[in-house]
């Protein structure tokens, strides 16, 4: 029978849990092999970063959704880590094929790459649970009827102190690396992209300005427009 929105959400949550619980919240053997092939093995940094970000995420999730949700926050984070490892492995496999390289030391020791990837994975988990949704009204999540709307995008960027542009850079590769994402979740990530491009990326201090300046100094043929105030 046709699925009601609630039934559809329950199904996608169930699929996410089954899919990610089986892969666990540790690096797979393949992923550990990529780590070992690095000139500098990133394993300890990855684990330390996850420990630190896990505490920040759970605490902020509790603040945003209510103290009774700290456990939910921890559960969301565990699922997010499972997706983070899964997508990372898929990305490295595709990069290995594309570049004929096995040593990803630079990328895997790039803190922003890891933080962005984890943020994107957590955004997918929260969107799957309906906690990060644009349906309840607008950019700031509006006054939705679920307590968790306080974690609507771009909440995760603030929690991880992550530049929107760095999150943006990851989205397309994330979608490409995880073909099992549902239509709704892809749509959600696309809306995040649009929000970033329309507003957030142009905030003061965004790395986008540096990039534009580099392009300009790099002698790009056409004159670069100064960013709108």
């Amino acid at each position: 029978p046709p699925q009601t929105p609630i039934r559809a959400a329950m199904t996608s949550i169930q699929m996410l849990r089954v899919d990610l619980t089986s892969s666990g919240d540790q690096p797979s053997t393949n992923l550990a092999t990529y780590f070992k092939h690095c000139t500098v093995d990133p394993t300890q940094d990855v684990l330390k970063r996850l420990e630190m970000l896990g505490q920040v995420f759970s605490q902020r999730f509790g603040q945003a959704a209510g103290p009774h949700c700290v456990v939910n926050g921890r559960q969301r984070f565990t699922l997010g880590v499972g997706l983070y490892y899964k997508v990372m492995e898929a990305m490295l496999k595709s990069e290995e094929k594309r570049l004929s390289v096995q040593n990803f030391s630079k990328l895997l020791n790039h803190s922003t790459f890891h933080t962005s990837l984890l943020a994107c994975a957590l955004e997918v988990v929260m969107a799957t649970y309906g906690e990060s949704s644009f349906k309840n009204g607008g950019f700031n999540g509006g006054g939705g009827d679920t307590a968790e709307t306080g974690v609507c995008f771009p909440w995760i960027l603030d929690v991880f102190n992550l530049a929107a542009f760095d999150f943006y850079k990851l989205i397309e590769s994330f979608i490409k690396a995880e073909p099992t994402l549902s239509k709704d979740i892809v749509k959600h990530l696309e809306t995040c992209e649009n929000l970033i491009m329309e507003r957030i990326a142009w905030r003061t201090g965004s790395p986008l300005f540096d990039l534009l300046k580099q392009e300009h100094e790099g002698g790009a043929a056409e004159q670069v427009e100064t960013p709108a105030s």
Partner: peptide, 21 residues
Amino acid sequence: SHDYHFGLEEHEGISELFDCD
């Protein structure tokens, strides 16, 4: 099943996007 518009070129992957090529 989705209609996401992929825009990255063949020579643009996650390594280039994070300046690790």
